[in-house]
Computed example of a mutant assay.
Amino acid sequence: MTPSRRLLVLTAAVLLLGGLAAAVVLRAVARGEGPQAGGPAVAAGSVTLGPQDRLTFLNSTPGPHRGALASVPAGTPQAARTVSDLTCQRFHAAAGTGVCLRSTPGALAQDNRALIVDADLRTLRSFPLAGTPSRARVSPSGRFAAWTVFVAGESYGAAFFSTRTAIVDTRSGALEPDLEKFTISMDGREYRSGDVNFWGVTFSRDDDTFYATLGTAGQTHLVKGSISRRTVTTLAQNVECPSLSPDETRVAYKKRVQRGASLWREHVLDLATLREHPLAEKHSVDDQAVWLDDRTLAYGLPAEGAPDSTDLWTVPADGTGTPRLLAAGASSPTRLG
């Protein structure tokens, strides 16, 4: 083939590939996909945890603000995001107090920390974490915060995992570093076992009562605990990552629906009757859901096509309706107001 012939073929190939690429981009835009479709605008600004009708979450969209605490109007969660300079792996807030779990990739466990922050996101207290951040919660009054970390294994669906769950008094700094030291009552008797794990604390308004998951002997249990008495009592089986409703009559939780598999279905349990019902979300939810109000739950699901990102979804708490996208590229929601 002559040099001129080669040049002609190369030029044609470039034009063809360029046309195909343009067609792919245009098709992605038409379907609402790809960078040209436009995601939420993200800009640095002032984020506070004061009483306001806003939604905060951790931004997981690609870019320099990935992992930053973001804020949007609660009524328009798809609006432009204002992001702070506080970055976390897990976050939760209530009554002007927040807990931020930080994990440095590739760092030793002692470099992971829990930060207690005020309404202006200033660090009030800092505690070393015993492992990889998993769950975080603040009590409705802001008086207590809790967190769970993995100290072995990195998934609740793993064949073997170990957790450490702590509760801290945000005012005094007094720390209960390990709920495994609490006295356990099961079926009316004290229970002891070397394989006990706790995770997923959720608090009552009385600044003493909490609910959590107890894992032991291959079973998970919903427990009701007392901070002051350092006790927990089992209430129901096959309950993980509970979340107490604002009216404190129900607990939302993930229920394992296939033994030996990491498949969970979100349910709601009536605490007075211990009757449960599944929610309309059919995907496996590996998250501790958040109540946006007494009727609506929010939770994270892996973003389609982006395994390292999460989208927030909502679903009615009574089992009706259908799941709806709340915010793409987001996790760890908190409703302020």
Rank of each mutant, 00 (worst) to 15 (best):
R189S: 13
S141C: 06
R135Q: 11
D206V: 08
T220S: 10
S103P: 01
A80L: 07
A166L: 08
S245N: 08
D287F: 15
L326P: 06
R275A: 13
R66P: 03
L49I: 04
A130H: 09
R113Y: 03
L301V: 10
T202K: 15
G96L: 01
L55P: 06
D293M: 10
G75Y: 11
R265I: 00
G329M: 02
L7R: 03
G194V: 01
E33W: 09
G19F: 11
A317H: 12
S126T: 06
C88H: 02
V24W: 10
A80M: 03
F91W: 04
V72Y: 05
G225T: 07
R113G: 06
E240G: 03
A330L: 04
V268D: 12
A28S: 14
D178G: 03
L55S: 14
R66Q: 06
A28Q: 15
S262Q: 15
P73I: 15
A252D: 08
D169M: 08
A114L: 08
A13I: 15
I227A: 05
R189G: 02
G131L: 11
R113N: 07
R205Y: 09
A327E: 12
R137Q: 03
V268E: 11
L16C: 14
T183P: 07
Q288A: 04
K181R: 13
S245P: 00
S262I: 00
L86H: 09
V83A: 02
A166W: 02
S139F: 12
P140K: 03
T87F: 13
Q89C: 08
T11H: 09
A152P: 01
R143N: 05
P242E: 03
V285P: 05
R31M: 02
C100T: 09
R230K: 15
A23I: 07
T132S: 10
Q36G: 09
A217W: 09
T61Y: 08
L325S: 15
V138G: 03
L15T: 07
P323D: 07
Q237T: 12
L263D: 00
T334V: 10
V117Q: 00
R122M: 14
S172I: 10
D287S: 12
L10S: 05
D85T: 12
A261F: 00
M1W: 15
G63A: 00
P302N: 11
G319R: 01
P35L: 09
S245T: 04
L86R: 06
Q52S: 14
L8V: 12
R113E: 10
R265F: 00
D208Y: 05
